[in-house]
Design a protein around this nucleic acid. Structure first.
Lengths: 188, 188
DNA sequence: GAGACCGGAATGAACGTTCATTCCTACATT
DNA sequence: AATGTAGGAATGAACGTTCATTCCGGTCTC
């Protein structure tokens, strides 16, 4: 089998959660999307809330891995910034549903402590990376959270536009926006 | 009475929708928050979906009014940009629940055509304003949608941080971010 | 005391979840 | 090789609960 039932169910849930949200998605909907019986879902997940938390943590872990993977530890800060930017873009483009799901879910009332902690850890990676640039005097005198708002906020909105076809993700466009973001955060 | 029941119900619904989303909010919850009977809600709204759509349109209308109000038609583009930036910030700060609700709801499956059209009209105002700057050669060679992603995306993320206390909305910080955004979109 | 208005119990549909049953696969027996 | 059997996996009808919505008896207002 190419994909286990466990994975099939998670994939189906992710698609629906991204489209309709957690509360707007019923367990029978997930079952139908995954082409399994409703009861089967409960062989793999204790309940709907455990399912959404497991899905969230998995998505965040893969997202974090995408960022850390091939991080140019030896190169200069400008290169590192570029790496993070393009990896954020890459993940949002290759996993639009996961990206949308993560962002819509990150503050949700049904997330457990572990999930919240995992997401915070992921954000800390981005923040500490920006802190490094700030210490090196390469970035403006703003809290690194502000940089996150600029870079992550931009990419988040961009990915929405790519998804609904408002904007086409051409290389030239991405490179232009990467420069914009760099100019927004870097010391003049 | 300072506030009609109609308004009280809308306010209560907005608070809950912003916190828990449309499907995560039940009509009895809204009734309790508004301190009215569940049946009373149906004296003012045909059903839950009509309620959320009316609320959405009202919020978008007030948001749009905030932007248009006092728009410095006679001044230069830099001033106009500043105006839009600070009005976006102002609305998100004075109406954090409305702002969060609008952004979480803008693409939702339960919005009717009228609501979608209203929101698009609002976004068109921002876009046409940016187009003007582009025609004047003041902005980079990027689609104006990309500018929206940068400015609106930044403010959206920022407002989240203000709401959950990650960041404090000091004047100095806002002015610094406004400059960042301007540098991100303007021709060097 | 008539009429508009309101609250919250009542209602049927739909929810998350369970469970008795069926299905499938692998191995034992011949 | 063919048949029998065991047991985990899968199912979907059924359960209690909760939802959106309706309805009706009571309460203000004039």
């Amino acid at each position: 089998m190419a994909e286990s039932k466990h994975e099939t169910i998670l994939r189906a849930a992710q698609k629906l959660f991204a489209e309709r949200g957690y509360d707007g998605t019923t367990v029978p909907m997930i079952a139908e999307e995954a082409r399994v019986g409703a009861g089967t879902i409960y062989r793999y997940f204790e309940n709907k809330q455990k399912l959404v938390n497991e899905l969230f943590r998995g998505s965040v872990a893969r997202f974090a891995a995408t960022l850390r993977d091939g991080f140019p530890e030896q190169e200069d800060f400008r290169q590192k910034f570029r790496h993070v930017f393009y990896r954020l873009i890459r993940y949002s483009r290759e996993n639009p549903e996961a990206f949308r799901f993560i962002n819509a879910t990150a503050n949700a009332y049904f997330l457990d402590e572990q999930s919240k902690a995992d997401f915070e850890g992921f954000m800390d990676f981005i923040e500490s990376h920006l802190d490094e640039g700030k210490k090196a005097g390469l970035l403006r005198d703003l809290p690194s959270q502000a940089f996150i708002a600029i870079v992550y906020g931009t990419i988040f909105h961009l990915s929405r536009m790519f998804e609904d076809g408002t904007l086409e993700p051409a290389d030239e466009l991405l490179s232009g926006i990467e420069n914009s973001c760099w100019d927004a955060v870097s010391e003049s």
